[in-house]
């Protein structure tokens, strides 16, 4: 695994750990109920997927394969474009429905989380379209 990717993973997981620890210390387990539980579950699932992907790439690197080539770059560009367009509409709807959210933090946090989900979904769609 490239050193900078390893470092990035460590930083991401340390940050997640510190934030989670801070929340638990200040709010106990009250935070992990209802909608919050769903949000935390999505974040953790995203983290696990990122971790698995990183290790898969590490394995490929050890086998002497490149981790980025012209097809993966094309998939990244296409899915990035779709995710960007979908995110723009999502933010538009979020601002139109801003009164439905309990507070600004929930609105922004939810928006960021859905943006990440859209990026994941668009990558999946681009790969599926390529397979058809």
């Amino acid at each position: 695994m490239k050193k900078n990717r390893k470092l990035l993973l460590i930083i991401v997981f340390l940050t997640m750990g510190v934030v989670l620890g801070y929340i638990i210390i200040n709010n106990g387990t009250k935070m992990f109920q209802g909608l919050n539980l769903l949000i935390f579950a999505l974040i953790i699932i995203g983290g696990v997927i990122a971790f698995i992907t990183a290790f898969k790439r590490d394995k490929e690197e050890k086998e002497g394969l490149t981790t980025d080539d012209e097809l993966s770059t094309l998939i990244k560009y296409k899915s990035g474009y779709y995710a960007y367009m979908a995110s723009m509409y999502m933010w538009l709807f979020i601002f139109l429905l801003k009164d439905k959210f309990p507070d600004t933090e929930t609105m922004l946090g939810g928006g960021i989380l859905v943006s990440a989900l859209l990026a994941f979904i668009s990558k999946f769609i681009v790969k599926q379209k390529l397979n058809d």
Partner: peptide, 29 residues
């Protein structure tokens, strides 16, 4: 497929898509 991918410096997935005719390679590839 893995050998070929290593030789031309692409991912194995790219060779799979190429063989299936799902992807047109660049002139260099």
């Amino acid at each position: 497929q893995l050998d070929l991918a290593k030789l031309v410096d692409v991912r194995r997935e790219t060779i799979v898509f190429l063989e299936k005719g799902k992807y047109n390679p660049s002139l260099k590839l």
